[in-house]
Design a protein around this nucleic acid. Structure first.
Lengths: 150, 150
DNA sequence: GCGATATAATAGCAACTGCTATAATATTCA
DNA sequence: TGAATATTATAGCAGTTGCTATTATATCGC
């Protein structure tokens, strides 16, 4: 009983990913790649570190996702002119061609997933989950800054 | 906007896993292994197939999780006397020793994750997410409406 | 300038996840 | 009985995720 919420969120998220992936198999783009792309669309030129922070994954996780997207010619790494350690990320023209279809699929899936929920319930769902996320997110940061200070 | 719920659920679930894993690193048991164990506790002797269906993962996913748990001597595979293809799963004595600690951690984490939510809000959160999960779950099978939970 | 420290990204390792395919066994039906 | 079909579990492959290093570069303190 106790950890129901954690399990439940995990299950639901997994089913969401699975449903999305099943619908986009043909395009070769996964749910999580789509997520990265749709963030990147609004932040072109961002560096990997800040993007990782934005979508709250570890830098190495992002790095590997970018590897695959570069391989698929959907994302482009350009050297940062002011910092030779860093990359700046851009979408390629090829991305534009598929974003529309992805968005339609995502919209349809969201609709299906929330079928039977009123507008008010959907809003409340988002609000409640966001509060949980904020709780968990805050907790991560609050412990990071001091690590070896014993 | 469109797919916010999907992204949001995914993020929150990931943060949940991460927080859990950070707290149980010492035990070597991950959030998802704990989940499997806690289901198994209530269904000892179950076969892999039905357990996979219960926790809604693919059989092969479950198979590999069981591999690791067997390796860690937390789960035991015993041949099914009536079907030589099948295994029946049991917890080992070693499992009992760690379940208590895990449950405390899970409880504490759930509490932290839902901090600031009233009892009514927690209940509503669970109810709403469950409805989303049911929508997605139903859509996967399309034929087996065997969702008796709730 | 130079050494210490911090930051950006990546490598190795391991766990979770699912798709497609396959092996072994069971069941069904002709 | 024997062939066709279904079920149970696993193998190969690939993507996601994070932990702990490591490399390369930048910045800070002296």
């Amino acid at each position: 009983m106790s950890e129901t919420i954690g399990f439940l969120l995990n299950d639901t998220a997994r089913l969401f990913r699975r449903a999305f992936n099943a619908r986009t198999k043909h395009s070769g783009i996964t749910a999580l790649q789509w997520r990265l792309i749709s963030y990147l669309k609004r932040h072109e030129g961002i560096r990997q570190g800040p993007l990782a922070e934005l979508i709250e994954v570890e830098p190495i996780t992002l790095s590997r996702m970018v590897d695959r997207l570069v391989e698929a010619e959907l994302v482009e790494r350009r050297a940062d002119p002011t910092d030779r350690r860093a990359w700046r990320l851009y979408l390629t023209p090829r991305t534009g061609a598929i974003v529309g279809g992805m968005r339609d699929i995502a919209d349809a899936l969201t609709e299906e997933a929330t079928e039977g929920l009123s507008a008010a319930e959907r809003a409340q769902l988002i609000e409640l989950v966001e509060r949980v996320r904020a709780n968990l997110s805050r907790r991560e940061c609050g412990k990071e800054p001091t690590k070896e200070t014993m």
